[in-house]
Every structure is written in C-alpha cells, then in structure tokens.
Design a protein around this nucleic acid. Structure first.
Lengths: 231, 231
DNA sequence: GCAAAAGTGTTCTGACTACACCCATGT
DNA sequence: ACATGGGTGTAGTCAGAACACTTTTGC
C-alpha cells in the first residue's frame, strides 16, 4: 500500500522513551539513574532511556530499556506522560514518552545495571538532572502517590513475602508521613487480601514479624464486586 | 550546532495529536466528532486531530486543532496519554498523543465547527470510531470521572453563571448515577467556593433556580491551606 | 388551584483518628 | 532481666447516606 500524501507530507520526529524506575530498599524509595554517555550533557545525571525504533511500539521501547538496565521482564510499568516541548532536549527536537516502573529491587540484575552505568539513588539524593528529567521525576512521584492510594501498587516494590511493618514503612516513605501502626494493620487486614504465612522475618527484631503475601486472586474477586483498595 | 550521530542515526516518526472535546448541553455530556476526509477510512467517524509540526510543541498542536474546530482559545485542556502501537493507524505508523478538553459548548463557534465538518454527539450516540479512537474516548471518560471527583473541572463545562440543579445534572451525567439533591447542595455550599448571585434561571421551572458563580480565588486560597474539593 | 421544579433538616451509620500497654525473644 | 520491635482494643468524632415535606409561581 502506498502512503497517501496526507501522511507523506507531514514532518517526522525523533521519539524517545525515558523510564523512572522505582525500587524500595532499606526502608527507602530509590530511583535508578545513570550518567549520560553522549553529547550534549555527557556525564550529567539522567533517567534511563532510548529512541523508539521503527516497528517498535512505545510500550515495547520502554520495556526494552528496562530489560537492558535491570534484566527484568514482565514488571509493573505504566505510561506517565508525553513531554513534547520543542526545546526540551538541547541536542535535537525529541518528543519523549515517560514511563514509570516499580520493581523488586532485590530481584534485579545488579551486575547488569552496574555495567550499564546505572545507580540506585534515594529520593533525597537525586541531583539535578538533564533536560526536563527532574520534572519527570516530580511528576512520577506525584503519580505514584496518587495511584498508590487506590491501587495495590505497593506490593510491586516489596519481595513476594513481606511483613506488615515493612508494608507500613513503604507507605510512610511514599506519602512522607507517619501512619499509626494499629490503624494501618486494622485497615489492611480488614480488606481480606493478605495471606498470612507461617514464617517470620527475624531480621529486624528478636520477636520477629509475621510474613504475608498479597493475594491477587482475592483482590481481583473483591474488585469485581465493587471493593476499592485504599490506603 | 550539528546534530550528533546519536540523534542523526535514530528513526523518525509521524506524531499526531487527537482531541477528545467534551461539552455539556441539554443535560447531556457531548463530544465533538468529525467525519474523516482522507484515506484510509474516509467518511468514518473520528476524533479531531492533526500532525505535530516542526517547531511546534505537542501541547501547541492540540491547542491549534482545538482552535481550528471550535474557534476557542485558552480553554481547559490536559494530556490524556500517548498511543504508540505500531499498527494503530492503518495508513502509516503514527504515534498519537491524545488530549482532552472541556469547553463551554454555548460559547464555541458553531459555524466554524460545521464548516470544519464537526458534530456534537451525546455519549450514547457515539458510533464506532476509526483506529483506536474509541479506546481514546473510553480512556478520556475514565479520566474525566477520576479527575472531576477531586478537582473543580465541572465548572469548565458550564456557563459562567449556573444553578445548583444544573451543576448536579452535570455530575449525574459524568458519574452516570443519581445524586441526592439535599446532600449535594449541602456539600457544595459548605465548601464556600460558590458565589450566590441575585439572578434566577427561570428556564426550567416557574419558581426559578438561583444562579451561582464558581469563585476561583476562594478555591485557590482554600487549596493553599489544605482544602480538597470533592464531589 | 394546580403542576412542576426549587429549596430545606434530621437521624443513623460506618469509617477514621487518637491513643498506651503487653508480648516474644536474643543477648 | 532487659532492650527491642511486634502486636493488640476502645472511645470519640465527623462525614456520608437516607429520607419527605414546603415554597414559589406561571399557567
């Protein structure tokens, strides 16, 4: 099929994807950042990213970038938004689609990340980033806070088995405020979406904290009947 | 400045914007749709859209499309998301950024819209649309519902002066469910963001309904002190 | 005087908040 | 035995939901 002039006469643009990759470790939210390897701004901190190829969807491009830096597949990823200012990239006019991903930091390939020049930085350690990447990070954080409230996203950042204090630490970090442990526990357990395991995590106390697993089946069944997760 | 090969060797893509334009008239949410004028799919229903030009931001492109079809400037508009599947447009590989806009339908240029081949359709009248445009409409509706709940968006769809029954009709239409008029009135007025006018709208009843205006200054002042709009 | 929409208050219930002590165990 | 984090219950408050009658006025 020949391409109609309607299409042929329109301008074409470089299109990139940039990924805001969240992890949770040592009670801190972290982001995977890297030092840029090309001009302009070589050596400056940036998000991981890459250009969208021919025959590659933007979602696929983001998944590729994620796979390249972490070795992970099939992880939670969502589009943040498109950044389309003409001057946003000082090297050329590039339209960028930002994605944010939540990964279990323990499960990613640290060797691969290091080889790739990627580093995990805690939120408060993030330096100035190139172009509009700082804005992207701000937007991603705002989106994470918004979405985490009504969707069970948090579990994507924790190991499969986790304790309630761990889960509470995570939400305290996301919302940047303290949560009452009795109320938190009550609320979470009342939802009926947590499977209590016969194991304890003794790494943080002598007594040990019970481990739980997020029961996705139950969550989805409840959701079909109008249940809404809320933290 | 010459473009580094990092940029020069990457593929370029057609990038379009598509606009989901909402209006509210006769107690119904409506969308501005048009019949496509080019192949493929000539004559089929689609959203209004256009290609992003060189030296034009994606936001500007969307504003241009809106201006061309409605004659309106400076209206509420927000990015929905980027649709980046390779095969989404059957004419060529086109990445599309969707925007949704809320306009005061009474104030747009009906002559211009008609000349442009655009038509207002109520939600339940929307036919099958080309490509992934039906999906875009679904996504925009979901986004409108989400956002309207905690942000005073609704006022963008009403005339500057409106009655509480009108406002309630709007939210009933957005949420597709009935709202108790006493509770609704109580909640809205308790926020202290409505300016009561000395006029009545007698078009819908003998008694007439008081007209109000949304007080944006008060809303913003309250917001700065932690107030959150919710309907 | 009647039809048709506008306007008004109260009660009940469920969810969120605040808050202090006992438990288990490794050292 | 003691230090450390894990685990538990209750009372008060507030916001949302349910619900029925009076008011105004053009015809």
């Amino acid at each position: 099929m020949s391409i109609p002039s309607f299409y042929a006469n329109s301008p074409r643009h470089l299109v990139a994807v940039d990924c805001i990759i969240f992890g949770f470790e040592d009670g801190r939210l972290k982001l995977l950042m890297m030092k840029r390897k090309v001009d302009p701004m070589e050596g400056a901190w940036s998000l991981v990213g890459g250009f969208v190829q021919e025959g590659e969807s933007t979602d696929d491009a983001a998944a590729r970038v994620l796979q390249l830096t972490t070795g992970l597949d099939n992880i939670y990823m969502d589009q943040l938004k498109c950044y389309g200012d003409v001057q946003r990239d000082t090297g050329a006019r590039v339209i960028s689609i930002a994605y944010y991903a939540l990964i279990r930091i323990q499960e990613h390939d640290r060797v691969l990340a290091t080889e790739y020049g990627a580093h995990w930085l805690s939120l408060h350690q993030i330096p100035d980033l190139i172009f509009d990447h700082s804005q992207m990070v701000q937007d991603a954080l705002a989106r994470l806070r918004d979405k985490a409230r009504f969707h069970p996203l948090g579990f994507e950042l924790l190991p499969e088995k986790f304790s309630l204090p761990q889960l509470r630490d995570l939400y305290e970090e996301i919302y940047q405020r303290e949560l009452d442990k009795r109320n938190f526990r009550k609320k979470i357990l009342a939802m009926g979406i947590m499977e209590k395991l016969d194991e304890k995590d003794k790494s943080t106390s002598k007594k040990g904290a019970h481990l739980y697993r997020f029961d996705k089946q139950k969550y989805e069944a409840l959701t079909r009947h109008g249940f809404v997760f809320e933290v």
